[in-house]
Write a protein that binds this DNA or RNA. Sequence first.
DNA 1: CGCAGCGTTGATATGGATCAACAGAAGTGG
DNA 2: CCACTTCTGTTGATCCATATCAACGCTGCG
Lengths: 243, 243
Amino acid sequence: MFIDCFHCPLRAAVAFRPMAPDELEFVRRTKSGERHYPPQTDIMIEGDPHTGTCTIFSGWAFRYKMLNNGSRQILDVMLPGDLMGLQSVMTGRIRHSVQAMTNVRVCNLDTARFNDLFKIHPSLSQALMATLLVEEQRADARLLMLGRQRPTERLGYFLLELRERLLRRGESADDGYSLPMNYTHLSDTIGTSRSQLGLSLREMQERKWASLIGGRLTFLDIPAMKQSCEYAHLPDPALRTLI
Amino acid sequence: MFIDCFHCPLRAAVAFRPMAPDELEFVRRTKSGERHYPPQTDIMIEGDPHTGTCTIFSGWAFRYKMLNNGSRQILDVMLPGDLMGLQSVMTGRIRHSVQAMTNVRVCNLDTARFNDLFKIHPSLSQALMATLLVEEQRADARLLMLGRQRPTERLGYFLLELRERLLRRGESADDGYSLPMNYTHLSDTIGTSRSQLGLSLREMQERKWASLIGGRLTFLDIPAMKQSCEYAHLPDPALRTLI
DNA sequence: CGCAGCGTTGATATGGATCAACAGAAGTGG
DNA sequence: CCACTTCTGTTGATCCATATCAACGCTGCG
């Protein structure tokens, strides 16, 4: 049941930078346990100073922030291999919540060892920084989309990016994937209302870009979609490190 | 004319984590020169693989992305002490442009030495990572504001955040600061049209939050403004490292 | 002097929010 | 196992906030 990092099936995915044996040994010893979260449960809550750090092993989650009026902004979707809670280790407090979207299994990490990481494994900490910088690039793209694109293009961009992330993890076919997000998730991600999301989905279908039926997304014309949404492919996966 | 890092006036600001002598020596040796950029000139351009890395010594700049239709999204305003171009060193390519808003002086950094940074100065690289994570928090806040707040609240949030950043650098009084941004800059930052920005500025004034006259921003009721814009103060400045 | 850029205001159009309604699915409790 | 409730997808009607377009005076500059 307990997954050994040396035989972690996630590592086989092309999404991640290959790791030296001593680095991998370090990671293995940093892992302090596993935990399961059912859908719709919070894994971390904004403002909590006592959150730990963990990596998603399986399932989907999302980072989000709330306003007092109850509206929610989903900041990012988190997939297997994504690290969460680094903020709270390094800055003492986490400024967003994380919620499970499907059943989620995480590998907990011993936060105390992050100090050693920098001392003992410079190349690993360098790789981790590269990972953060790639995340920053994705955040910039989201800012552009929220600030300057139309709802349908925002949606398209989001779905294309998800496709590429999943492809690298071997969790998507070229022409589509299973999407465990409902209307509310999607509209809170692209910053629109629920009804507008419905219109955008229909528009996507009418333009023959893609269709979402029964939780299954199917792409119909990826080049046209990329063109219109001004999608830029993700940086080299060799930059992303799995801890 | 050439500023020695040991006597860098920026370091006196409360914005930055204090630095050990050997760290400072490392930084001093990493500095490879200085350069000046007049207003409206690009310091870095999106997609360029050959950008270096530098830190703003004085003046204001901004990071931005463009769409094909010509619209621009300003991702962030960069102030003295902010590091730029780390993306291109670590990931090989920069995904946004940077433009000077005022006269800007930068300290260029020798990118080759960033490898040594991790090997020789773990605490410094750890501090740099904390800095990145604080930036991530600020980016999350911007996503929330672009996705879920009204233009006036977006504007208010932005101005409040700028105030706090400037205060820490000793470049702002408690009740206001000089703002070298024009209508286009501001509207491209908060994701609205130019005319809407005019309305939001007026609304800000009518609500007695703040007023912007002749490039000088004056706060009238900061608590009310923070309340309405749901402003959360920035993390501890001891986390931010000046390289 | 003429021109370009910028702040500012106003008129109009429209895209998206809001509200409402409903059917089907899924979960819940008796 | 069925009735009931809740959630979710879906569509439509209405309204309003914001984009778009236009105009103009001002300033700085060539």
